[in-house]
Design a protein around this nucleic acid. Sequence first.
DNA 1: CGCCACGGGGTTTTT
DNA 2: CCCCGTGGCG
Length: 1185
Amino acid sequence: MTAEQFLAYAESLTGLVRVPLPSGDPLLYGARATLDDGFIYYDAETTPWLALYYQAHEFAHHWLHNGGSLCSGEDVDFTDSEDKALYGEGRIEAYGPHQRRETEANVFAREFLLPGDELRRFYLEEDLNAGRIASRFGLALDFVLHSLAYALLAPDVEDAFNASKIEDESETQGANSLTLDESQRAAAHSAHTPLLVAAGPGTGKTRTLVGRILHLLDRGVTPDKLVALTFSNKAGEEMRERVERFAPDAAPKIWVGTFHAFGLELLRRYWQQAGLPPRARVLDPVDALFILERSLPQLGLDHYQNLYEPTTHLGPILAAISRAKDELVSPDKYAELAEAMLTSARSEGDAGVTRRAERAAEVARVYRFYQSHLEREGLLDFGDLIFRTVRLLREREDVQAEVQAQYRHVLVDEYQDVNRACGVLLGLLADRGEGLWVVGDARQALYRWRGAAPAQVRHFLNDFPHGRTQALTVNYRSLPPIVSLVSAMASQMRVLPTTDGQTEADAKAERADFCSWHAHRHESDATQGEVSAVSFEIATDAAAEAREVARLIKSRKEGGIPFCSQAVICRKHSQLAKFARMLEAEGVPALYLGDIFERSEVRDLLALLALACDGIGRTLPRVARFPEYNIPLREVRAVLQDAKKTGRKFPGALTSFRPTKDVGVIARDEIRRAMTEADGTESLASEEDGAGKEGLARLIYHLAHVAHLQSAWKMLANYLFVRSRYLAPLLADNSSAGTQRRLAVCQLLQFLHNEGARAVEATNDPDARRAILRYVRRLKSLSEDKSLRPIPTSAEGLDAVRLTTVHGAKGLEWSCVYLPYLGRGHFPAKRQHELCPPPAGMVETFPDGEEGADEAQKDSHLEEEECLFFVALSRARDSLCLSRAERYGGNNSKASELLEKIEEHLPRAANGPATWSTEVEQDVTAVISESAQQAADTKPLFTERQLGAYLKCPRKYFYEQRLYLSGRGQETAYLRFHSCVYETLAWLAGERMAGRLAEDSVAVFQEDAQAQLARLWRVKGPVGHVYEAFYRGQSALMVVRAVRHYARARGRLFQQTWLIERPGAFVSLTPDYVELIEEANSATLLFRQTRTGRPPAKTPDEDIYALFYAIAAEHFPQARLRVEVLYLSTDETIELNLSRRTINTRLKHYDDAIAGILSGEFPPEVSDHQCPRCAHFFTCPKAED
DNA sequence: CGCCACGGGGTTTTT
DNA sequence: CCCCGTGGCG
């Protein structure tokens, strides 16, 4: 059943759906008093989904009261729910598997709500097959909610499915028969193998490959001797589709797919020979992270150890491990390479290389642990699919011979994406290359971070000395000006093409003709009204750039080019996100969901979830802003303050704050609304009046009916489809922005539904809702939330401009392509430093440790960026619009060096004057600040902590200081550990000041200090935490060190709060350690900040140190000053010497913070790094507005 | 001309 | 948190 059919069914219910009122909670469906006959009515025509939902309830009600019984699996828990009231206490005891009359429930679910096939689509097939569904009557309600989600939120699935069919890449060639031009035919029919077909963009690579398959079949090769491999699923599916179209009979017998899938197939077939257990499973990468996380304390990391967040580096470490597998480097080999690197680096005394080598050695330890874990558990990760297959073929000649005998013809698409491991696999498969036929374009090698290198293409002739290459030189995609631009870029690139020449010198000599493709299309094909196929514009700023691009898009749409044939391509997602927002603002429909957890509707719903389960109402400020509640901030403040005072937990704390209007009356309004409004867009007049109180009452009413639902999915589905009107504006919004908001909600519901169980397992939090919230933060901070990025296939049919990264654009084409952000530092992107550098010698191309290594890496990075630019340029069929701005985000921006490369082929100079400009609007809004009226003599007082918090993120300060919300997230193990250490230090200072600790009594005193630590630990430490032992050990060590430092004190110690006067306010500060050492004719004042971490690579530059200078200047003008930072992790001390200038700029930071607070400015400080770890992550609007 | 310090920004993504 | 580029100052 499609979404439409579903709605049609719902709408076909005639008249009113009558739902009997249960005898329990009077609020369950509203106020019974208003409805005399004991029934509520829902109008099926105006609120079909609600009617349908209640119809299911009604059925359940009747069923139970006629002797039916209720059974439930873990998905449906009625014990603590409103359903208990509905179904009656007595019936619940019938819980259990396989109760009588279960088939009736099944019949109901299958026949009445959704036809059987749809059950399969909407629910887990395995549940159905196991007959489990039959025993879960309650799932009927879930089906309804699921169906609602699809029907209301996702665009028409059928259309999208049809639209997603891949078109043949050239309009000029027929769709049902495969015609090849002369050189394509030469390549496809070549008798010579191995053959490398070196091609450019739009030259018909894949169709030539399909031509090869047809040719082989014509020559009588049986289909099961053919295997066609590629790197990505996307390319694999495309290949399969074409093979099916052109060779429908043979297609099922030809092996078409990815290298990894092929590896898996061989491993399954020969599992015994490969030494695998019979049912080896493929490991999900996210689970790989969790495996390491669980075992972290026993890994003994040093360089990658981070007290504050022990898991920070696991992602990069895992990436380094999979890189190793891409290079066929085993844990032993990795360790060996790292060891060798370490030895030579130490003997040469090179500190930088030593550090890298030590890091590599540490990764080697993790790799070894990880691999043995996989083997023990019978798990294969993606890298193993290739690695183990290679090992199988290498070690078992019988298997290799059998495989070679079967697959006589090996074809490879996207050969430039083949990495070392896949390359070796190919060699083993095709022995001396006989039967090997590959096609690729070295200039489109984008996947270097996975080990795919253009060198692979270049080395083809080394790997297969009998090989030959052949070029495809006709571009079928683009108009001639675009083809020349692309060719010009190609001739400038440092990637060397492959030719028949055996040396690089030959290759260079032949480069010129190779990279100048011949355009098959003619200038006259150009769209009417199009001035030139290639344009280049310079805008004054990013806003002007977006506005003008938007204008072009709209004018082309009017000229007959639909939005979906136009694409904006950027280098990275952060640029796309900004651009999408600006395009939407200009009224251009753009298809880009971005990061769904950054979207305001998704955060709204997560905030609601948090409100129901976090207990402290942290996200109330956000939920209060939902249109149907619209609770003013002062009321939110009052509620929060009250909750803090009385210690009541949310959501219960809401109700202690009695709204003036009776909840029952609100409830009645709710019913009436549901009955009278078509889609809920009209607002009731009463809403305007008592706004705050009524909004609060409505929120209480809604929460009362969903907050008990333990699963996040269920709670939100109920909230959205049954209780609240949150969706009303989204459903009424027909713009593409509305569609995307609905899609985002749909994606969120699916995520919650699919990941709920895993979240509980991964976070170890028994509350499923809290678990999923923690899980979201964790995914984000591990950067593992990308799987939610691709636009769901159901949206592919929408007529909206495509926004995509260059990587995402690979293999695709559009009529018009826009390439904005061509500024230096934006494209090419800045090179990232390597967190986990591979050991020297692992990757052949970079001779590590040498002087030139860094240069080589820089070069390779630029080479990759060139490839990206080349791919981006070559996506356009009819027009290509390049642009840059003179300013991006307040910084001047010069033209990208890539633009300079092709400057001669552009209509104007890369650094010429702006052609798109913003008319400067003077926005003279009067800024009214409350503080202006403040009397000058009552200077406010701020603590350093407060100002420090403001400097980190003003919005965070606002939540914590103005809304009384605690800044602490859940008490993490680190925080508990930290407070134990710090309290022990404070105690130490006291002991020292009381004279009980002196240098000669240190030994005895150490024991006292440890006892003190142990006492604190029992009460406040992370007792029972998985990493407790680790933190306990660290804390003991730190206390030992701290005692030594305190014992060394000679002078007078101060444990007190100091005041520093600044122009706008007083600042108070309590330093960890202040010692005044007075000597004969001089005095030294020592400030020592004690930190638990390790010293940073650069000198510490926190603002707080400037305040030490200010204290000294004010209170000890005569004394010499010494500022130290003690790091207890390593027992190192760093002395700071700040210049006058530095001190002043830092103090100015505090002054700015004071001014900001006093004038009421609390903008959020957006940071990918900090935000997921911030307590207000789900509340904060961040960059949404 | 060279050094230091401030401040901005934080990839790309597949199996 | 941590790197790198830029810009200001000596």
